[in-house]
Amino acid sequence: MLELSHVCKTFNPGTVNEKQALRDISLRLEPGDFITVIGGNGAGKSTLLNLIAGVYPCDGGTITVDNEDVTHLPEYKRANFLGRVFQDPMRGTAGDMNIEENLAMAYRRGKPRTLRWGITKEERTLYHDKLAKLGLGLEERMTNKVGLLSGGQRQALTLLMATLQRPKLLLLDEHTAALDPKTAETVLQHTNEIIGGEHLTALMVTHNMHHAIQYGNRIIMMNDGQVLFDISGEEKKGLKVEDLLERFQTAQGKELDNDRMLLN
């Protein structure tokens, strides 16, 4: 369904800050894949997601979704088939607007914005039911400003918004990294339930190796702008953190020394 072929990206080319964020990445996602992406800081995980989302253009290579070339499509047009949740809880919601208005914006993803009223009665009922399923009591606070919610509540809301219109692909960019461990677990649970329940195709970047192993049917490890390994199926199910570390060592010829990843 999503296919990247020979995609590369260099930031600040020709300067002292030149950084080859992605080097010749090729990747193919099958419908229903739930892929977790791990790797240290600067491995290129977020760059990968941002290129798919069209935040900045590729330097080379092509991106296709369901055989349609989207390489040069602007970010707002790619939103038609993408659902996204960001690392920063502030990013995915408009704090100055209330919960139902945020949901109504998300409900219209992929549709033209007209001069029809921004939110209808039937929608409110739908949002109420969907919010109730999150179990955070947000269904009783639909006219509250999102700015009043906690980081975890905002991420849960963003997740709901990203999947309100079924996306062809869900992009999760370390969406639990800014949350405390307990809230992170809850949000991950919701993520897993929504992806499983609606049979979504998803790409989830994480720093946490346990999460990467626990969730999804396929795992990709990235380092220095390249895919080190890609494990799926039965092999993925039996995977342990030690296996990942060992794999990294064989592939890279050195030990993994990323504190943030190990400490998790």
Binding site: A53, E75, Y76, K77, A79, N80, L82, R84, F86, M90, R91, G92, T93, A94, G95, D96, M97, E101, N102, A104, M105, A106, R108, R109, G110, K111, R113, T114, L115, R116, W117, G118, I119, M161
Partner: peptide, 23 residues
């Protein structure tokens, strides 16, 4: 209060979010 007007308000509040929602 319209869809268009809401997306203008949201642009002022959070342009990243609005783009990710196809505006």
């Amino acid at each position: 209060g319209t869809e268009l007007g809401c997306s203008i308000r949201a642009t002022g509040s959070n342009p990243y979010m609005v783009r990710s929602l196809g505006v």
